[in-house]
Design a protein around this nucleic acid. Structure first.
Lengths: 339, 339
DNA sequence: TCTATTGATTAGAGCGCTCTAATCTTGTAA
DNA sequence: TTACAAGATTAGAGCGCTCTAATCAATAGA
């Protein structure tokens, strides 16, 4: 059996309480005793039992994290940021996946709650708001990539509207006037990206063209083929704001297949700045969200609640940035100003 | 304060011990009492306290997971598989990252250990074997993507040699005889892939060509340029076995840049079957490891140790499979049989 | 010298649960 | 009726720790 505090106390010739104080490095322990206890602990290979500590102190150093889909690089990055911040502050993460199913997610949430965590972070949860409210009664809750109308839960989101606007501004700045958006449909965040696109276009006095698509490469291909079938060459949009990077790659394929060059004939902007966008082969201009930072902020929000420093909800809306690479350029002279 | 077992007992008019039995659904409780307890628990919103249970029962339902880099899709997939299996068996994951630094990793490991987990899973750890041994004295340990000479720890690895062999066999079957490997250098798993390549080539009576490279797309580009500079066209390898998918993409770029067509002039095989390989735009033939399955097996190995069913170590070596897509083809007639 | 005062140490209760052993009910056989 | 086994229930100790309040030691002030 692993040594307990009692064992250390016996070996150091002090009481269990004193060992406890040393372990939490309390200042009110004499140097001599502290050294003796530390040595005894070292010799026995003693390590405090986190759960016992948690039970006795009625506090928790555990943070529950529910992530819908770890395979999604976005969430993996957020968790990385979360873990770094949590580890630095002495918290531990207990992690769960919900598999995009409300039922499984609710179970996962329950599981986390049964650890009496200090707080909970939900990454893009699909459970109803009421369930989240219930959880929030037990401990602070922070939502990432999901909004909620609740004064007890904080949220961290990337500003999808701003991201699309960034893409539109970039293209317009390059001289483009006919710009289409490949809409992600019901995918997470797609609605905001669409709204941002439309608003930005109108702001520039341009007519927004929205094509129904999906957040996949095949979706991108299909939408571009539709676009190609709908518009004759001189009226074809010269700029494309894709729903995400995969979508953009599909779009580029279809474009090239049709004999159009990117970016000479059509400029394409992706979204998410995934690892594939950085590939020199593609070198996709895309919108980057501060993912790790989102994880850090989520932790920070939670920490403030845990420390009781804040009771009003906080809504972080992070600003994405545009990573300009090789798939966007000014429109060629021959096409330029003809409407 | 959240209700405890005592509260439920009081409300149901029974003893705490009886509530405990009901919560662990013991068969030796009368139906009437069980119903009463369940109702009281429901009304109070009672939920057992996992940590308290763990402390009292001297058992743990927690599994420690140390992952080096979650951003690496490989590990994210393994964790998904792990989580699914663990959740199904009633275990919870506490997750940590080690950041590829032995020191930070050692701290992370210590943290996990302080939860007195039922077992620990280390994904591609970089700490010395001795540290792993130490941990293994406290609870069962399973290593993924790392081997060790120890009778107390189990390992789950993908057979990198077999993967390379798969790629070579495929190319040889297509008629290729001059095949080069873009070596990943010191990257994890690179050595095995290289060995597998060399062995497979010799088995076919062919001379293995190994070019030093890196597991990145720029690495792939550079190596191909070197290859191009070294060999005159008729002697240029017609088949390339890349170190991983990124590397393959870089290689393809450089090839196309030099006016060579893939797969007509040169066939390229990647490794890892990352999401980019599946892109229709690329459609990369690549080697796929059963990642989720690896997670499941890691859990299974741990579970067997936890249940005390096995004491001899187990070494899982998973067989990769080849996903044939569009970057490989038979060599064109004009090039075919000339040496 | 005696008493405050401060700082260091410890006794002991308790966190929310499990588990063993003891006790209480029934039902059944003699 | 009595005895007893089998099943249902409970008392109470204890898991490894923290925390409050009490105790103890040492120094300072009168």
């Amino acid at each position: 059996m692993r040594p307990t505090m009692e064992d250390v106390a016996a070996r150091a010739g002090v009481s269990r309480a004193l060992v406890s104080l040393v372990m939490r490095n309390s200042p009110k322990v004499s140097d001599a005793r502290r050294a003796a206890v530390l040595r005894a602990a070292e010799e026995l290979g003693y390590q405090p039992h986190v759960m016992a500590r948690s039970l006795a102190s009625r506090t928790s150093t555990v943070l529950g994290v529910m992530v819908n889909d770890l395979r999604n690089a976005f969430f993996a990055d957020v968790v990385e940021g979360l873990d770094a911040a949590a580890q630095a502050a002495g918290f531990d993460l207990i992690l769960n996946t919900g598999g995009r199913s409300p039922t499984r997610e609710w179970n996962a949430l329950h599981n986390l709650l049964s650890f009496r965590p200090a707080g909970i972070i939900l990454l893009s949860p699909v459970v109803p708001a009421a369930s989240i409210q219930t959880a929030a009664k037990q401990c602070p809750v922070v939502l990432v990539s999901r909004t909620i109308r609740s004064s007890t839960v904080d949220t961290v989101n990337d500003d999808g509207e701003a991201g699309s606007a960034l893409a539109v501004d970039h293209l317009v700045g390059l001289g483009h006037r006919r710009i289409a958006h490949l809409d992600g449909g019901g995918a997470a965040g797609a609605a905001q990206r669409r709204r941002g696109f439309q608003a930005a276009m109108r702001r520039h006095g341009l007519e927004p063209i929205v094509v129904r698509s999906e957040h996949t490469d095949t979706g991108g291909e299909k939408s571009v083929r539709e676009l190609l079938a709908t518009y004759s060459r001189p009226e074809l949009p010269t700029g494309l704001v894709a729903g995400n990077d995969f979508n953009a790659v599909g779009a580029i394929s279809a474009l090239e297949e049709a004999g159009l060059r990117v970016p000479e004939d059509v400029s394409v902007v992706g979204y998410d700045n995934t690892s594939l966008a950085a590939l020199r082969h593609l070198s996709l201009t895309t919108v980057d969200q501060p993912r790790t930072e989102m994880g850090r902020l989520a932790f920070e929000a939670l920490a403030e609640r845990i420390r009781g420093e804040r009771t009003e909800p906080v809504r972080h809306l992070l600003h994405p940035s545009l990573v300009v690479r090789a798939t966007t350029a000014g429109i060629s002279q021959t096409e330029g100003h003809q409407r």
